[in-house]
């Protein structure tokens, strides 16, 4: 298993992905509606190859998205965390969640912990979120995080041609906001 940090929030555990997370991930990728803004649905076989990228990126870079686990039940809820594959337009903290886990503020809670971690551990001075202009739920998460829409951007292959806006904020903005909330 990839070595990496374990972060606990009020309701969630964030840790690097494990093989047992795949079943729920494959459910998410089989749900056409739920993954229309994250590259589209995929068969189980294609989902497996995609799933492997995340633990692999942990090994290659020392960071990638975390699996987000429900502290109470142990259930895989989704993934959130730092993400910067080759050619990516910036240092992203992203999120994608199983449809059964929507609407409870999990994405905001997980991304907040992931952004804290990325600024503390990775030396980033800026964080972005690449969001489809029609993906209103994710835009609301970005707003709750205090990020702003910085305008249209471009993703590399295999997502070239995807319409996205780049949301984001600086480390200074994040730290100021966290201090004000605390």
């Amino acid at each position: 298993m990839p070595q990496g940090p374990v972060i606990e929030t009020e309701r969630l555990v964030l840790r690097p992905p494990q093989a047992a997370d795949f079943e729920r991930y494959a459910e998410l990728l089989a749900d056409e509606h739920a993954c229309r803004f994250i590259g589209g649905s995929a068969s189980r076989a294609a989902a497996w190859r995609k799933f492997l990228q995340m633990p692999g990126a942990w090994m290659v870079q020392g960071f990638a998205m975390f699996s987000v686990i429900d502290r109470a039940t142990g259930l895989w809820l989704g993934q959130s965390g730092p993400w910067r594959p080759e050619g990516w337009p910036g240092n992203e903290v992203g999120w994608s969640f199983h449809p059964q886990a929507w609407g409870r503020g999990y994405a905001t809670e997980a991304a907040t912990a992931a952004i804290d971690w990325a600024f503390a551990e990775l030396g980033w001075d800026h964080v972005i979120h690449c969001i489809d202009p029609e993906n209103l739920p994710s835009q609301r998460v970005a707003q709750r995080l205090g990020s702003r829409n910085q305008g249209p951007g471009r993703l590399p292959e295999p997502f070239a041609g995807a319409r996205i806006d780049i949301w984001g904020q600086s480390r200074a903005q994040w730290l100021a906001r966290r201090a004000a909330v605390a």
Partner: peptide
């Protein structure tokens, strides 16, 4: 052929496979 960003994902997936399987 794969463009460079896709190649990166391929290498990551290979490593991920080592660690999970």
């Amino acid at each position: 052929v794969q463009p460079r960003p896709v190649a990166w994902r391929g290498l990551a997936a290979m490593l991920g496979c080592w660690h999970l399987q």
